[in-house]
Amino acid sequence: MEKKSILILTLGTSLLFGCSPTTLLPIDLMYDSEKVEAYYENGEFEEALAYVDERIEKYPRDASLHGERGYLLLELGRADEALDSLDKSLELDPALESALSNKSWALNELGRFEEAIDFAKEAINIKPDGDMEYINMGNALSAMDRDQEALTYYEEALKINPNSEYAFYGKGVANYYIGEYKAALEAFNKYNKLIPGDIDALWYLMYTHDGIGNFEEVVAYSNQIIALDPSQIDAYYYKGSVLVDLNKLEEAVNVYDTVIEKFPESPSGYYGKSRTLMYMEQKEEALKLLAKTIEIDPNYGDWAYEDPMFYNLIEDDAFLEIIGY
């Protein structure tokens, strides 16, 4: 999740004297904000990081530069390294709000949610009108299954920034997990308009429609996910199971045949087709596919034993032998 960048104030001390920075430093020592902004706009975070590293060599005690480095490392998915840079930034300037906020983000990424909450609180105290500060708090609370509390922070972020895509996403997640499906749909739909094609959001939209019982919508969103990423095997399986619920059994069989063709080493296609054939009262073929499933992954034996689709076979010797009971 993208977070805000950190404002660079490398030349702040010269500005205190009312002087133009260009009259005080050679051009090669100047921070080129336009270059960095271009890197960010193009998603060229490695290039931006290299530039900031050059600056840190010249200004090793500039807290904002270390904070900027931490932000870039987070964008690159290197949370451990980012945390080191953010700690250095806060060692030099303990009240640097952007570093506090991004440290909360880093701690969330590392699963250290209680600590993330502490730093989010500090960031909110310093900057109570920043949406990302509240989003970081909400993310930590949601990760700890404290979704009702998280919801208040996402809503606060939306008061500050009514178009905050990540607040909509977080709110959707929190609403979903407390069972407020209509509110979740509204939030995810707003996020999807701002960030179209996000597969994680499409999964949540699919789950939420499933929770409401809008099964045709579930199929539609599974199709979107598959179209965006044909390797999403779980989307095929989910689609197949919903088609069974809709009593579209031949369509479900076709979906599972596709899974078997595309992912022959995965048990899910064989298992899904086996369940569907049981529903269609084709027991012998269903058991053959179930045997193939368990040959690939024996854990499916326990699942089959608990699966309502196989309840009629609970005392069937052939079934019990296949699942290992």
Rank of each mutant, 00 (worst) to 15 (best):
D118G: 08
D118C: 06
D118S: 15
F119A: 02
F119I: 03
F119M: 07
A120I: 03
A120G: 04
A120Y: 05
K121H: 13
E122D: 08
E122Q: 14
I124P: 01
N125E: 11
I126L: 15
K127H: 03
P128Y: 06
P128T: 05
P128A: 08
P128L: 08
D129W: 05
D129M: 06
G130A: 05
D131G: 00
M132L: 05
M132F: 07
Y134C: 03
Y134S: 02
I135M: 08
N136F: 10
M137R: 09
G138A: 00
N139H: 10
N139L: 14
N139A: 14
N139E: 11
L141H: 03
S142Y: 09
S142N: 14
A143I: 07
M144G: 10
D145M: 10
R146E: 14
R146Q: 15
R146C: 10
D147P: 05
D147A: 09
D147C: 14
Q148C: 07
Q148A: 12
E149F: 07
E149R: 08
L151P: 00
L151V: 13
L151G: 03
T152P: 04
T152R: 10
Y153R: 09
Y154L: 05
Y154F: 15
E155G: 06
E155H: 09
E155I: 11
E155Q: 15
E155W: 07
E156N: 10
E156G: 06
A157S: 10
A157G: 08
A157I: 07
L158V: 08
K159H: 00
K159Q: 07
K159F: 00
K159S: 04
K159M: 02
I160C: 01
I160K: 03
N161M: 00
N161Q: 03
P162L: 01
N163L: 01
S164T: 03
E165M: 04
Y166Q: 11
Y166M: 13
A167D: 04
A167N: 02
A167G: 02
F168C: 04
Y169H: 13
Y169V: 00
G170K: 11
G170N: 13
G172T: 14
V173P: 07
A174N: 11
Y176M: 15
Y177C: 09
Y177D: 10
Y177T: 14
